[in-house]
């Protein structure tokens, strides 16, 4: 991974955090359009951001690094995302260049 990709990953993580904060405040919803625009610009360069919040989780998901909260380990879902998954386009497919860092909890 070169320095430029590393740098972009850092920026994307900050962008993700800005998006998360903006989504919690009604008065900041207009920022979403700019955030989407930046994400589109990244997609132009072949970097795709995926937010796994709310998705189900089990031990086969190697696209996330998880910390599991609570005491149940069945029916797990991603309850908090610290860093999103970042893919890089490679030909017709994509490679993961950053695994998400997530907190996982049981639905039950």
């Amino acid at each position: 991974m070169n320095d430029s990709i590393r740098f972009n990953i850092k920026i994307i993580n900050q962008l993700y955090e800005i998006e998360r904060k903006a989504s919690q405040k009604a008065e900041m919803h207009s920022i979403q359009r700019n955030i989407d625009r930046i994400k589109n610009m990244y997609e132009e360069t072949g970097l795709f951001i995926h937010d796994p919040l709310g998705e189900s989780y089990n031990e086969t998901r190697t696209d996330c690094e998880a910390e599991i909260g609570g005491d149940a380990v069945q029916n797990l879902f991603i309850s908090n995302v610290i860093k999103p998954i970042i893919y890089q386009k490679a030909g017709n497919s994509k490679n993961i260049i950053q695994r998400a860092v997530v907190i996982v909890e049981s639905k039950t």
């Binding site: 031990e59 190697t62 005491d71 380990v73």
Partner: peptide
């Protein structure tokens, strides 16, 4: 090493379940 759902999982994924399972 984790033995979950008929699978043997070794490494990072197994580590996530150390305290919970």
């Amino acid at each position: 090493v984790a033995f979950r759902n008929e699978r043997i999982i070794i490494g990072d994924k197994a580590k996530e379940f150390i305290e919970k399972d």
